[in-house]
């Protein structure tokens, strides 16, 4: 564990608390892509199956359980509790375009042909693109509530912070995980446009609006 990974994980935790806070205080999941949230549940469940087979640390176990539980809770909020505020007509990204290629990539790039490794690899690839339905929705509506942009910024910062962590681990432990690094770079890259608008507008006190 190093500070980059630790702050990355904290940022990930923060993003989830911000999202739950947004939904429960506004009593609305307007502006949030259900598809992206469903993909995160898939990501966490497929990656953290090793909860039952290997123990890393108490920190690791608690975080895994939290990510699975909180992502399921968010689906519950969107699908049951605040269902009327969820508008599927603007959440139109085709999931098969994401899931299909990730299955293929996992079959080609993995650290072993067994279910655990294949699902782990799949989850890494899927995580890197899981935000696309959300960003697509943002692009379509052209604007976002400020709280939603804070959620996205914290979520984007999480994987971005893993990059210096991998550089640090390479020099300190000789640890290299090419699958995570490649997917992590792609994942962070997808946020660059968003980050640009976030830093130049939202953090200057303006509303998040995309140029027409």
């Amino acid at each position: 564990m190093n500070i980059f990974r630790f702050f990355g994980d904290l940022s990930h935790l923060a993003s989830i608390f911000i999202l739950i806070h947004k939904i429960t205080t506004t009593r609305s999941c307007r502006g949030i892509s259900f598809k992206t949230q469903a993909l995160y549940v898939t990501v966490f469940v497929t990656r953290y199956l090793d909860l039952f087979t290997s123990y890393v640390s108490l920190y690791n176990t608690v975080m895994k359980i939290f990510f699975i539980a909180s992502s399921c809770y968010i689906l519950y909020l969107m699908r049951v509790r605040y269902r009327p505020t969820n508008d599927p007509s603007i959440d139109t990204f085709r999931l098969e375009y994401l899931v299909g290629p990730c299955v293929v990539l996992a079959l080609i790039f993995n650290y072993g042909y067994n279910p655990t490794e294949l699902l782990w690899s799949f989850s890494i690839f899927l995580e890197s693109v899981a935000i696309l339905p959300q960003l697509f929705m943002l692009q379509r509506t052209g604007e976002a509530e400020t709280i939603t942009t804070h959620y996205l910024a914290a979520l984007g910062a999480y994987r971005a912070l893993y990059i210096p962590n991998w550089i640090y681990r390479y020099f300190s432990e000789g640890y290299v995980d090419p699958i995570s690094v490649t997917a992590g770079l792609v994942q962070t890259g997808l946020y660059l446009d968003f980050f640009y608008v976030y830093f130049t507008k939202v953090l200057q006190g303006q509303k998040f609006e995309l140029p027409a």
């Binding site: 990974r5 994980d9 990930h12 090793d50 087979t53 290997s54 890393v56 640390s57 690791n60 975080m63 895994k64 990510f67 650290y111 072993g112 067994n114 279910p115 655990t116 490794e117 782990w120 893993y162 962590n165 995980d177 995570s180």
Partner: peptide, 10 residues
């Protein structure tokens, strides 16, 4: 099934 790489990251 034995994991081939340490999965200590989240």
């Amino acid at each position: 099934t034995e994991s081939t790489t340490p999965k200590d990251e989240l």
